[in-house]
Design a binder for these strands. Structure first.
Lengths: 196, 196
DNA sequence: GCTAGACTATGACGGTCGTTCTAACCAGAG
DNA sequence: CTCTGGTTAGAACGACCGTCATAGTCTAGC
């Protein structure tokens, strides 16, 4: 699923993102990440000298950028199209993995920082959320939504889909995502004036 | 925070729920759960002979019932009151823990099952989500919401709040919860006919 | 061919994991 | 008092953890 990438560094990062999305950060070992990417353990410390923390941070950024790119590609067609792309992405991941994989950004977000200062992976998770919200909110405003309400709706959409993906995994059913999708589509229609 | 309970078994379960909500299930060791509850390691295997899995399952059920009880207490005053209780509960947990704790049910929901058959803790997480949704949906219907839409809105509310709590932890800010809250309140007003 | 530097292979370090076991403790019943 | 049964103390098991170090292999450029 992540073995066709030629660049080993990138392959390790993509594999790490996938494993973190399944098991969480602490529960994923560097040895498993290496094996999952078909790379030797020594290579991980060659490519990522700062160890697990650096690899996790890059994995979160990788996943965050993947979603951001998809949003940037679809949002010009309107907020509803962006929502649909967001939904489709998670729907595919959840179904293809047999309800075993989810969002690596969420997985990192809910792990308690071990010390008082923030681990960079957690900061990267916050940045990913922020970027997704900003992209969505800007599109809502561009389609006539009230600026303040656009921010609220964007937060709600990201949070609701993230939460629903987790619910789908627990229930081993895609139905919650369909229900959430229906309500979020209606909400977008409500806050953006009718077009054409 | 969980040391005032006299019954040691219950104290261990409550402490385990708290730790799981911070670190996730795999990252929380039985030794830490015992120490956190002021109980010896041997006691955990005395009270929970099936080990970590049994303790985790009871912790998830404990947290699920805590929320369900709060919902049952507040929902007779209407869906908006139930939402407020739900929001207040997570708001308190997130703020009191300094953005370190969240929802143990969500934490268990996003951990990949190690084998093909479902661990009981994951089943308990699905049941908790189901119970919360059912309580909320029934209240929405009782206040005039369309039955199908009530189910969709209930799913959205639970998922959105769970996702927002995770977002608040990553951003170390309570603001996402306030934004989500405002939109969910509006949504409830929309689907329940005006009263009085 | 030869050498420099990127990469791999291998094993070791101290530590923690879940779990189990046995010996001790200690309340209350008889 | 003894006895009993719930509870604890403490050590031990093999396995895995993150990390590091060292020796080896490969490939580019000269």
């Amino acid at each position: 699923m992540a073995g066709s990438e030629p660049d080993p560094r990138r392959r390790i990062v993509a594999g790490a993102a996938d494993m973190i999305s399944r098991r969480g950060l602490t529960a994923t070992s560097i040895r498993e990440m290496a094996k999952h990417a078909g790379a030797p353990l020594g290579s991980t410390y060659h490519y990522f000298p700062d160890g697990k923390q650096q690899l996790a941070t890059e994995a979160v950024r990788y996943a965050g950028d993947l979603v951001s790119r998809s949003l940037r590609r679809e949002l010009p067609a309107g907020p509803a199209a962006g929502l649909q792309a967001f939904l489709d992405m998670w729907r595919t991941i959840v179904l293809d993995s047999g309800f075993r994989a989810g969002c690596p950004v969420l997985a990192v977000a809910i792990e308690e920082p071990p010390t008082d200062d923030l681990p960079p992976a957690l900061v990267a998770a916050a940045e990913a959320f922020d970027q997704w919200e900003t992209l969505l909110a800007d599109s809502l405003r561009a389609h006539g939504a009230d600026p303040g309400e656009a921010a609220e709706v964007a937060t709600l959409i990201i949070a609701a889909v993230e939460g629903t993906v987790a619910m789908c995994r627990a229930k081993r059913s895609i139905e919650p995502l369909d229900r959430t999708a229906a309500q979020l589509r209606r909400l977008i229609d409500t806050v953006t004036p009718a077009e054409r």
